[in-house]
């Protein structure tokens, strides 16, 4: 789980990039709280070969990466 809520871009993408590089997870959940971060993290996930599912949460979005 990567919690990138409250962070301006590009921090959310950098955090996800680090996690993907370090552990190459098959699945990964990312929490963000603004649309810009949601778009950028989704774009990054897809570029790394993940399918990205987006669901709403109380204070933003949960992005679920799956290989």
């Amino acid at each position: 789980m990567v919690d990138a809520r409250g962070l301006l871009c590009p921090m959310p993408v950098i955090m996800v990039q680090k996690e993907v590089k370090a552990n190459a997870p098959q699945t990964l959940e990312v929490l963000v709280d603004d649309v810009c971060a949601k778009e950028n993290v989704t774009r990054f996930g897809k570029s790394q070969g993940y399918k990205v599912a987006v669901s709403d949460t109380d204070d933003g979005y949960k992005l679920t990466f799956t290989k």
């Binding site: 590009p10 990039q17 774009r43 570029s47």
Partner: peptide, 13 residues
Amino acid sequence: GGVRDAILFGDFK
């Protein structure tokens, strides 16, 4: 952001 994302992620958007 343009220059930054190109350097960091190869993202040219």
